[in-house]
Amino acid sequence: MRDHLAIKSQNLVHDTVDGETILIHLEKGNYYSLTGAGAEVWALVGAGKSSEQIAVELAERHGRPLEDVAPAVTTFLHELLEEDLLEPSVTAAASNGTPAWRASSWRPPKLEKFTEMQDFLMLYGSSVRQEPLAPVG
């Protein structure tokens, strides 16, 4: 896995509420929930952090040994990549600083995938960017 990854720029919408990130893959019609430290990892990827930087950051935040945290982060990022929620970044993204986070006990990042709603969500699926268009009427 490449060290630098970026949040997929098209056909993906996502939001984080109450420490849980929800994502919709608009081409596949799948939706996902990131729990545990998943939302933290997602925010750190969005801030341009590398896999290694994310592991170090989480180990410091949660007071856990890096050797415990790093494999969990690597596995989680690999899952996100496999699900086409992240994409390799050709160059290291400019870091946007470290996102704010709320202190919480360490729970490994977890990806839950829901496919049951594909039939409802595969509506249009055409090159929808993350940024929604301005609402009309």
């Binding site: 939001d15 609402p135 009427g137």
Partner: peptide, 27 residues
């Protein structure tokens, strides 16, 4: 047409994320 209440390429993504989160919680 000009006055569609929900143009199809802009299906209210905040609402979509909200309804899916509600579905996750139910499941």
């Amino acid at each position: 047409h000009e006055t569609n209440s929900s143009p199809p390429m802009n299906q209210g993504m905040p609402d979509m994320l909200r309804l899916l989160r509600a579905s996750v919680i139910r499941r």
